[in-house]
């Protein structure tokens, strides 16, 4: 298990480095810089700015500086908030917000998606299965801005139960978390259903049936445990889906999280902030995938043998 874990970890490092290299090259290749104004700056001012951001150094040294800075936890100054805020400060403020939103959304997706998948599998081919699967397909087909708009209209503007935006108490969390969790919910429900159906056809379930166990006991004591193992692998894609979803959801609900900062950083061409946030997203997604590999290797020894 230890060698397996180390191997997996060793594979994650080049992925992370590749991501840093790609974002760095991409940001260097961008036409125009954050200090390009309508009015050209005086040459000496421009030179001074470029010096303070180390733009005058060779590109390779800039990259080395960036990597070593990132490794020691310093992501540099933000261009837009020049002088007042560093990328670290922006991330330190916005990460907890996004993390909380993401975790609540994923918890919602799991706690609703798994029962939905189980119900669908138990009533296979019936009306319940049909509606559950229609919901799952709708979940991946609904644009989040439509879901958000309808939720805001109904629960904030008509019923007045929940606030339509901002990030204050738990009540402001409900609508964005539901919007963000809908797609993960659909993914979880579909996989749970498929995996449970497969398990219910396996030999050991037939044995359990043959020895006279009740359907309920077979489902919950025997089948479900094994059926949920593949759902673990979803963690990677789920984190990815949550990150991607957060861009739109945080914009709509005016939530001061990383997704909102990322979008405005792109619009403002705040390159250091874009790179810093991309790096955090990279660590999150790679970390989630690494966790999946490790957990899976631990649950299922066959996985360890394969690599």
């Amino acid at each position: 298990m230890l060698t397996y874990a180390l191997k997996r970890l060793a594979l994650a490092v080049p992925t992370m480095l590749a991501l840093m290299l790609i974002t760095f090259v991409v940001m260097k290749a961008v036409p125009g810089g954050p200090f390009d104004d309508e009015k050209a700056l005086p040459p000496d001012v421009k030179a001074a700015i470029e010096k303070s951001y180390h733009f005058d150094e060779p590109v390779l040294r800039q990259f080395a500086r960036y990597v070593s800075g990132a490794l020691s936890g310093d992501l540099g100054p933000s261009y837009r908030y020049a002088g007042s805020r560093t990328v670290n400060e922006v991330i330190a403020e916005s990460f907890p917000v996004s993390a909380q939103l993401g975790l609540v959304a994923l918890a919602f997706a799991m706690s609703a998606g798994i029962p939905l998948g189980v119900l669908a599998a138990r009533h296979r081919g019936g009306a319940l299965d049909f509606s559950a699967m229609f919901l799952a397909i709708a979940g991946v087909s609904l644009p989040s801005y439509l879901v958000a708009s309808v939720l805001i209209l109904v629960f904030s503007l008509w019923l007045g139960w929940l606030p339509p935006a901002l990030w204050e108490d738990w009540r402001s969390m409900v609508l964005p978390a539901v919007t963000l969790g809908l797609r993960p919910l659909a993914m979880v429900a579909r996989l749970t259903r498929a995996s449970l159906l497969e398990t219910l056809h396996s030999d050991y379930v037939r044995t359990a049936e043959a020895k006279g166990l009740g359907a309920r006991s077979i489902l919950f004591k025997h089948a479900l445990k094994n059926a949920l193992i593949p759902v673990v692998t979803l963690l990677g894609p789920l984190v990815a889906a949550t990150v991607a979803g957060s861009f739109v959801v945080e914009m709509i609900f005016a939530i001061p999280g990383m997704g909102k900062h990322f979008v405005s950083a792109v619009i403002d061409r705040d390159y250091t902030l874009i790179m810093g946030l991309t790096l955090v997203y990279g660590v999150l997604v790679i970390g989630a995938n690494l966790a999946v590999d490790l957990v899976y290797g631990w649950i299922d020894p066959r996985m360890r043998a394969q690599t």
């Binding site: 992925t15 991501l19 990150v243 991607a244 979008v263 997203y281 995938n289």
Partner: peptide, 12 residues
């Protein structure tokens, strides 16, 4: 492993 929307935004 990366969300394609994230890569698409970076490319944009």
């Amino acid at each position: 492993v990366f969300p394609s929307l994230l890569i698409a935004i970076l490319l944009m």
